[in-house]
């Protein structure tokens, strides 16, 4: 008990709601929420069905294809994105180490998961970011929402996700998307807003309509910033995969979770490094790709 320095009780211990009232409030919200979820469970299942199918297909594809084919496919993507021999060689070394330590299949599961989550985050984040850049009101509404999404501990929103979608891959992906989409939205918004006002005015002066301005000027000129958003989204998705394993997502994250529970030092670090390897491959490739998109500004005049 705090010593009250002679102050009346009211100013000493904060007058919280009585326990009884708090319990009522909690039960009312929790039961109401569960009731709604139960009532709509059929619709929720139907809505997540395509996502489930997409996830399963991709995971099966990644895990059932011979490793050499997957490795070549990854290297091809890395090469097309970065056009850098160094990054390709680094990718070969990283992927081979993962294979040597017996983590290939778990890595493929995680890769499938991150791919799906990133795609969804881009598909959702890009249009939201565009709308946000076009309207100041939308920006003032979205900014606090994004702040909450980014600062709320990720374990907390696992709770409603589990209540609504249960345990499994789909709730895992949804949790990852919620965590990974804010940078995509923010950086799309920022990128479009940072496009030179004079260039926009020029487009206006030549009679460009909003669609022509968006696709012909705003998006191409904000692409470097948008690519930074994609890069951040991938990184955050990889980080969140471990947390998502708590709701039943397999792959590297599950191994890490088991290692924590059983104090398996070596397994924990091996799986952790496997995640780092994928993260670096993704990061270097997407950054190099983003840079290549701005080749027009690299060739400065003086």
């Amino acid at each position: 008990m705090a010593s009250c320095w002679g102050l009346p009780e009211m100013l000493c211990d904060f007058p919280a709601l009585p326990n009884k009232d708090m319990r009522h409030m909690r039960m009312w919200i929790d039961d109401g929420f569960r009731g709604i979820v139960r009532h709509f469970s059929a619709q929720i299942d139907a809505a997540t069905q395509p996502l489930q199918w997409f996830l399963n297909t991709l995971e099966n594809l990644f895990t059932n294809t011979p490793w050499i084919v997957i490795l070549l496919a990854i290297l091809a993507v890395v090469w097309l994105g970065s056009r850098s021999v160094k990054i390709v060689i680094g990718s070969i070394i990283g992927m081979c180490l993962i294979g040597v330590f017996g983590l290939w299949e778990d890595t493929m599961t995680t890769l499938a998961m991150v791919t799906v989550a990133t795609l969804i985050a881009i598909i959702l984040g890009l249009p939201i970011g565009i709308v946000m850049a076009r309207s100041n009101r939308m920006q003032s509404v979205m900014t606090p929402v994004l702040d909450v999404m980014q600062t709320m501990p990720s374990f907390v929103y696992l709770i409603p996700v589990v209540v609504i979608f249960g345990i499994g891959k789909v709730p895992g992906v949804i949790a990852v998307v919620i965590y990974a989409v804010p940078p995509m939205i923010r950086l799309t918004n920022l990128g479009i807003r940072l496009v030179d006002k004079e260039v926009i005015e020029a487009a206006d002066a030549f009679g460009a309509n909003p669609r022509q301005k968006l696709w012909g000027v705003q998006l191409p000129l904000s692409l470097p910033t948008i690519m930074a958003g994609v890069n951040q989204t991938i990184m955050m998705a990889l980080a969140m995969v471990v947390v998502a394993s708590m709701v039943g997502v397999g792959g590297l994250g599950k191994n890490v979770l088991q290692a924590i529970n059983n104090q398996f030092f070596t397994i924990g670090f091996l799986n952790g490094f496997a995640l780092v390897a994928i993260a670096i491959i993704f990061d270097r490739t997407s950054q190099a790709f983003g840079k290549r998109l701005q080749k027009h500004s690299e060739v400065g005049h003086d």
């Binding site: 260039v199 005015e201 020029a202 487009a203 002066a205 030549f206 009679g207 000027v217 000129l221 027009h296």
Partner: peptide, 23 residues
């Protein structure tokens, strides 16, 4: 109408050029 007017009747040159850097 304003867009059509700008497209066909007017053209503008800007102080800081305002060229499209990606084109």
């Amino acid at each position: 109408e304003l867009r059509e007017f700008r497209r066909h009747e007017t053209a503008m040159v800007f102080q800081k050029f305002a060229l499209l850097p990606h084109r």
